[in-house]
Design a protein around this nucleic acid. Sequence first.
DNA 1: CGCTGGATTGAGGCCGATCAACTTCAGTGG
DNA 2: CCACTGAAGTTGATCGGCCTCAATCCAGCG
Lengths: 226, 226
Amino acid sequence: MPSSIPSYLSCTRCTFAPFCLTEEHRAAKQFRTLERNETLCLPKNKFQNLYVVQHGALKTYQTEADGKELIRGFYFANEILGYEAIYTGHYLFSAVALAETLVCEIPYNHFLESLQSKPALQKRILYLISRQLNVGSYLLSTTAEQRLAAFLIDLSVRLHPLEMKLEFLLPMSRQDIGNYLGLTAETISRIFSRLQKNNIVSIDHKKIHLLQPEKLKQMVDGLISH
Amino acid sequence: MPSSIPSYLSCTRCTFAPFCLTEEHRAAKQFRTLERNETLCLPKNKFQNLYVVQHGALKTYQTEADGKELIRGFYFANEILGYEAIYTGHYLFSAVALAETLVCEIPYNHFLESLQSKPALQKRILYLISRQLNVGSYLLSTTAEQRLAAFLIDLSVRLHPLEMKLEFLLPMSRQDIGNYLGLTAETISRIFSRLQKNNIVSIDHKKIHLLQPEKLKQMVDGLISH
DNA sequence: CGCTGGATTGAGGCCGATCAACTTCAGTGG
DNA sequence: CCACTGAAGTTGATCGGCCTCAATCCAGCG
């Protein structure tokens, strides 16, 4: 079974390495590899670990009474999953891998201890949680086009934290995008077609190219941020 | 000018007292009283303080290019406002009082120091931030009725943290509710009328009584939480 | 090759927005 | 005391965006 995960991945390359946990933990290399569609955690499970995504992508979702799933978020490399669970003591969402994915398990009690002993780490973590509070704020946009435009910009930033790329692969299906944005797969498809006709993006299946990112931003930019 | 703020309010009654900041800070009593419609912070301001609401209510909002305001949240007694700003370094939202309101100012550097020196406080704060991550998740509900029902339940819990009351005063206008939920004031009004006709709630201006809270929960309860 | 799930495109229906009229209420000043 | 004013709330009629249902197309894979 060929792996899409680069073999050079290790703690030394990890974004969090400068802030990482105890030497013992680092030595333990609490990695976990997930196949596509493999589950990372379930709502019934007791909350014990935070997860740092090292490579790949996951989605979190809840299940409605009628069995439909309701997607609550996507997580990519260098992002941390599990904060929401701190307050309930068990995971609120199911999390599954959208592709082959590598995560690093961080026991929450280790996490707390490390924060206590490392002021720089504490500051950094509060910063990251604060950022998390603002993720997905565009879900409140009124029109479907605005929401999708904001989603694409968000993706282009989060998939390539270092250098913002305008060409990338959509890690999730149209169905998942629509579900997350409170829309249907058909609506997503229609808007993609419209954006492509207007030369704002070009799309070939999963591959997307933001041809005029500034126009995408205009669509959203109702908001004055300062 | 008569004050609606109880005179007995002080740090000794504060929910956060057991976890509160340095003795010096507590002695300083960094209280700030806000009149109705008075602004607490602005997006252009540099982030320096977190605010603990002691009494009253506030709303946060952003302003769109066309001048319309977009309400992002409500804050009531015993809630903390400002976390989102940690990551940008300046406030993202404007915050104004919906009624006469008392807040306690906590300088962020004091906050960090206190967390560092008090493990119990750190744990508590992470818990509260985690809870914040889940507030407003019902904004993703599909129908207007679901969103309003969830909002009412949320209010009934948050306005009376100790004993959940079914009768309370709406701190904000129909316009504000609609804006927050991504709906119009007319829609809010219509749904209120419908809920009243069905004896699910009774409403007299600001005064609302949840007659059948279990029915309200049913409307929302698509979600399986465990 | 056929099969299966995802994606695209079309036709029709419904929910909530928009626009407008009317009522109520709080505050103000005569 | 009442007239005036403006904001907030209620209710009705119409319109439009997105959902729903359905058919077709396509890629991946046994």
